[in-house]
Design a protein around this nucleic acid. Structure first.
Lengths: 267, 267
DNA sequence: TTGCTCCTCACGTCACGTGAGGTGGC
DNA sequence: TTGCTCCTCACGTCACGTGAGGTGGC
């Protein structure tokens, strides 16, 4: 027979608030050992303290409750550790994003809005090898970083010669709405129909307003704004997806300050 | 006359979603230059792009909207920078907390639950100099760190001699509810009524169950749990606030692994 | 004229916290 | 018996996102 604790006792022992314990019961994360049917009183067993501690630790790390449930239900230590590792990876990514957000803020406040030069350019259709995805704005960053590497590997594996800089084509909806198509491509002279997860793609011809941006990708929105205002001033409506050309990018150097990106707004 | 942009154009230019822009209008964070009364259409001015960028940067750093509003309304650069510095401090604190939460998780998963030794002890009343506060659990950590230093300074400034280790008394409500009284005290033989923000305090006599905890304060809940279960097993109800004695703590060394804390649960 | 853009309104999300109003347990 | 503990239920918080249903602008 195991000792049963009231919710108040269990709260004092685990340092989880009574409201929180009731919430965890409601959502099925931590069910009391027994509940008195007549009174509704919850009774916790002493062996539940360990689970409570695990939950507390994971919630301190802002792991979603559904994921916490999965950790508690993990069949063995290696499955559990895999779930934890995934979450710690996510946290590491967030930290990286926060660091670049701080840098972008500093940049915005300190760097004078340089007069951004805008050039008009007409480009012909161009054969390329590409990877596509329909993503949300939140997913775009992760997709962009990983796909860039995958694409280069696919081009290398197919023994193709790159005939121009890596580029991307992005639906407007990716910025204004919740979902849109994204494409990353590498120009090659004679692309096969498919190469691994990549496939042949023809970058369409277009008239573009182009501005060049130097530095990490996080502050690129300032260049977008300058371009967008320029185009709007010309009363030209939206005429298709925007493009980016990575003249110097993540595949070339880890020094983000050395990155050179062309932003292209269709006319 | 300044060019006016529709919400869709402004969205593409600033990379803020249309839904987000409407939300910012609703809460008065970023009001369109003009709104057509008949149709409700919002029109943004080109000069609002800068504010939009600032908002975006600050929201990327999870600054609450009310604080963002304050930054935008700051009368000068130094006032603005002060607000930003406060937020960056908060973020730094969060980062520190996250790091210790990761350590605490690792500790929980890796360190075998050592058989915690519990001692019963009866203590007499003891004169001390103390600082009090009514705080929420969320505030407790920050209050604890800063007050500890303030209290030591007050004792030093009053030229008093410390007669025992720094200690704390904490209401149960701090763990089970949303608010409670917290006290930090330093035993001294003959305390003045007040010394700076500190005042005389008599640590009440008590019968205590005591366990010693080695290491950073983040994993202290495991010792609380062992003590609480021990006391519950003896069918002794809650008999007043818990106490902590910091035999080795933040005032003594920055090496958190060397900290020694006695946790005292009243009987 | 067509279809694209814009609108409002009510509700959902996430992990709880708040507070009213009431009952059971020691 | 008293008052302390526990209960439910509905709503609030925060920063938006969702989706229905409808209208205006080029």
């Amino acid at each position: 027979v195991q000792a049963e604790l009231t919710i108040g006792e269990f709260s004092r022992i685990t340092h989880l608030s009574v409201k929180t314990l009731r919430h965890y019961h409601r959502v099925g994360l931590l069910e009391p050992d027994s509940v008195n049917e007549a009174t509704g009183y919850r009774y916790y067993g002493t062996t539940q303290v360990g689970a409570a501690h695990t939950i507390r630790r994971l919630r301190d790390l802002e792991m979603p409750i559904d994921d916490v449930r999965a950790v508690l239900a993990a069949p063995d230590v290696s499955a559990r550790d895999a779930l934890l590792a995934t979450h710690l990876d996510r946290m590491q990514q967030q930290l990286t994003q926060t660091q670049s957000a701080v840098a972008a803020l500093r940049d915005l406040l300190e760097r004078p809005r340089a007069g951004i030069e805008i050039e008009h350019r007409t480009v012909a259709a161009m054969p390329a090898l590409a990877m596509h995805a329909t993503v949300t704005p939140a997913e775009l960053g992760a997709w962009w970083s990983s796909t860039m590497v995958d694409l280069r590997d696919a081009v290398d594996a197919a023994g193709l010669e790159q005939t121009g800089p890596l580029g991307g084509v992005f639906d407007d909806e990716l910025f204004t709405d919740e979902q849109g198509d994204a494409v990353l491509y590498i120009p090659v002279s004679d692309p096969p129909a498919t190469a691994g997860r990549a496939s042949a793609f023809t970058v369409p011809p277009a008239a573009l307003a182009v501005a060049t941006y130097l530095g990490p990708h996080d502050s690129v929105d300032r260049t977008y704004a300058a371009l967008g205002l320029h185009v709007a001033a010309q009363k030209a409506g939206a005429a298709g997806p925007v493009r980016e050309h990575y003249l110097v990018g993540a595949l070339d150097t880890t020094d983000v300050a050395a990155w050179v990106t062309e932003i292209c707004w269709p006319l």
